[in-house]
Design a protein around this nucleic acid. Structure first.
Length: 108
DNA sequence: GCAATGACTGGAG
DNA sequence: CCTCCAGCCATTG
């Protein structure tokens, strides 16, 4: 069942990511209690397409600010386009000024 | 219930 | 600078 509490938590955190901001799997995992569960966060993101309401998964990147999950989108370029649509600059599948655009769930 | 998997991470080579 | 390895943890078969 893709409706577990953990998934819900992950989706909830991702939905709280402000416009024109990004975060990382590790940050979300850490916010949920275990930084080591970053992989699970990514796994949950894979099901984000079925999540309701929809989750801005394109704002979730790895620790390096790289679009590691772009393949999971309808189109491999969709993630980058969505981010650029928000005013975020991407270069070589990597977010520029990632540190500046980075948003920590605890900082809300 | 055990074994495999993954949109990760940090450290070592 | 780039590549490889081992840890970690919820979900799935």
């Amino acid at each position: 069942m893709a409706g577990t509490n953990f998934y819900e938590k992950v989706y909830e955190v991702v939905r709280q990511v402000p416009y024109r901001r990004v975060t990382s799997y590790g940050a979300i995992a850490e916010f949920l209690g275990s930084r080591s569960s970053a992989r699970v966060v990514g796994y949950a993101m894979g099901h984000a397409g079925s999540a309701m309401p929809p989750v801005p998964a394109h704002r979730v990147l790895n620790a390096a600010g790289m679009l590691s999950g772009k393949q999971a989108f309808a189109s491999p370029t969709l993630m980058q386009e969505l981010l650029e649509s928000e005013g975020i600059q991407i270069e070589n599948d990597q977010v520029k000024d990632f540190r500046k655009l980075f948003w920590d769930p605890r900082n809300m």
